[in-house]
């Protein structure tokens, strides 16, 4: 059987429960050898040291762990690290371009679209996809398609304003 678990090395008892993941994170190749149980969120935070992606619930119910996999927003807490083998992952650390911050990062600061900041990486990653998805046409659409990202500080109005601002600027 073809699998990606079995690599060239002979699996020992311990190795059976590890998996090698070859991925690209924020444009740079990455190789992780992790416990098969490791979620993408854990691999990013604990293995890759990219702690910008946050754990707010670990149950797929808050959106704080939102990252992009092959350009689509997903919840990294419910995806196994093994599942991004061969895929492209983008986190908040990779949101800014070489020329400076992403327009959303600037708009979030300008509109005070966060308070404690804990949900912010997830909000930003979600919003970046929202723009690409063409779902920022109205405030109602922005609110609906950003509802997978909880903000307990309640910065929603300012998040909408920031996204609206960037959406208009890129029209």
């Amino acid at each position: 059987m073809k699998t990606t678990r079995t690599t060239a090395r002979a699996p020992s008892a311990q190795d059976q429960y590890t998996v090698d993941v070859f991925t690209v994170v924020n444009g740079a190749p990455a190789q992780w050898r992790v416990d098969t149980r490791t979620t993408l969120l854990e691999a990013l935070r604990d293995t890759a040291g990219l702690t910008g992606t946050k754990r707010g619930c670990d149950q797929g119910a808050c959106g704080a762990c939102t990252v992009h996999v092959d350009g689509q927003r997903v919840l990294s807490c419910l995806m196994l690290a093994a599942q991004v083998d061969g895929r492209q992952v983008t986190t908040v650390e990779g949101l800014a371009g070489e020329l400076g911050p992403h327009p959303l990062q600037e708009a979030f600061m300008r509109h005070d679209a966060f308070q404690c900041g804990f949900c912010t990486p997830g909000q930003l990653m979600s919003a970046a996809c929202l723009l690409r998805e063409g779902r920022a046409g109205s405030d109602a659409d922005i609110r609906e398609y950003m509802s997978g990202n909880l903000c307990r500080c309640g910065a929603y109005d300012n998040i909408v304003a920031a996204i609206r601002d960037v959406a208009k600027g890129t029209d």
């Binding site: 946050k54 908040v92 800014a96 005070d112 900041g117 912010t120």
Partner: peptide, 21 residues
């Protein structure tokens, strides 16, 4: 004025206790 800690919060570089290793 904008939050002085804003740049840390929008780049994911603000260290919360969960980020400490």
């Amino acid at each position: 004025i904008d939050r002085v800690d804003g740049p840390h919060k929008v780049t994911g570089s603000a260290p919360y206790s969960s980020d400490i290793a």
